[in-house]
């Protein structure tokens, strides 16, 4: 039986193995070493996520604490990437994109195209997403649709330890800038992960569960919710196919369309805001390219169009949880044109 490890350890293992394999891989971010210049132990913390703990001891100055100046250090990672390094930079929360977005969407994303194919920017921005931690409006968002909107960026939203390791190694080896979105509720998730290095190609959706009645497309933390709901509904005779796109850019259109062709019904689950989000994007894709397959209107299960609330009662209402997913599946299944 394959070894089981936590999502956060899968990420550390990916960083560790890639740093060991390729000396151009470097890691930087706030507290990623965990105490540069402080009187205590240098490698004590490994960042607010604990993900990078132990790497300083192995790789020394290839992992660097930064001042809290996201524009400078994200930009430095981008610049170093154009000069032959493979930086993995940690943007602690995706909500902080506001203080470094130019370096990502105007600089990193554009170089290859704008410079006529003569520049490569193999930078990875690892960043935390998602609600559920009572972390309130500025530390809880799922802003990956905003990055998905930008040509030239690749955007990854892993949903399991296996995917996290393989997709992160792929991200590090990829020659384009990659935004790697880690849902904070998944860090403690356990799953089978090979000890060897491996890569999962981008733009290859995972069919988490096969089914014939309803296609459910879900991302990140929502994949687990959707799979649980699908398992429960299977006992009652509703067979759901759960698809995890794994990357929002590139996006695996074919797998979604093939599935909807078989099921005729689509529910899209996305923790992001509803307007111009992935749910709307995927729904539009299927409406445009798979209209003839559809036997019921597409259902979108998303957060409401509000900031993320602090109060636990409100935040739980905010998150598109299993009950909402189940209701949407029942609605499309029961639709009688």
């Amino acid at each position: 039986m394959a070894r089981k490890i936590l999502f956060q350890d899968a990420i550390r293992e990916a960083l560790d193995q890639e740093m060991a394999r390729d000396p151009s891989v470097i890691v930087m971010g706030e507290d990623v070493v965990g105490g540069t210049g402080a009187p205590g132990e240098m490698d004590a913390w490994g960042g607010v996520l604990g993900v990078t703990k132990g790497l300083y001891g192995k790789y020394g100055n290839r992992i660097m604490d930064t001042p809290i100046s996201e524009s400078a250090f994200v930009g430095a990672a981008v610049g170093a990437a154009t000069c032959g390094m493979r930086p993995v930079v940690e943007l602690m929360f995706i909500d902080f994109m506001g203080v470094c977005f130019d370096q990502i969407y105007n600089q990193a994303a554009k170089f290859r195209y704008m410079f006529g194919g003569k520049a490569q920017t193999p930078v990875v921005v690892r960043t935390m997403i998602g609600a559920g931690f009572r972390a309130a409006a500025q530390h809880s968002q799922c802003l990956y649709p905003m990055f998905t909107h930008v040509p030239g960026l690749k955007v990854v939203v892993p949903s399991s330890p296996y995917d996290a390791k393989g997709l992160l190694i792929q991200a590090i080896r990829d020659n384009d800038p990659v935004i790697f979105c880690e849902h904070k509720a998944l860090y403690a998730m356990e799953g089978e992960v090979p000890e060897e290095s491996y890569t999962i190609p981008f733009g290859e959706a995972n069919v988490v569960r096969e089914g014939k009645d309803v296609t459910v497309v879900a991302l990140g933390r929502m994949v687990g919710f959707a799979t649980k709901v699908a398992d429960d509904l299977a006992k009652g005779g509703i067979s759901c196919e759960v698809i995890d796109p794994r990357t929002t850019s590139p996006f695996d259109e074919d797998t979604v369309l093939e599935s909807v062709e078989n099921t005729g019904r689509l529910v899209v689950v996305d923790e992001a805001s509803p307007r111009c989000g992935m749910a709307a994007d995927i729904a539009a894709l299927v409406a445009q390219k798979g209209f003839s397959f559809l036997e019921a209107p597409i259902e979108m299960v998303t957060a409401p169009h509000t900031p993320v609330p602090f109060n636990g009662v409100l935040e739980d209402l905010y998150i598109p949880g299993p009950a909402k997913i189940e209701a949407a599946i029942r609605k499309v299944k029961g639709y009688k044109g």
Partner: peptide, 17 residues
């Protein structure tokens, strides 16, 4: 040939080397 059989082979093929 089911999904999990294909997935198992893909997981093998993705390993370095």
């Amino acid at each position: 040939v089911n999904r999990t059989m294909i997935d198992a082979i893909l997981k093998y093929k993705r390993l370095d080397g």
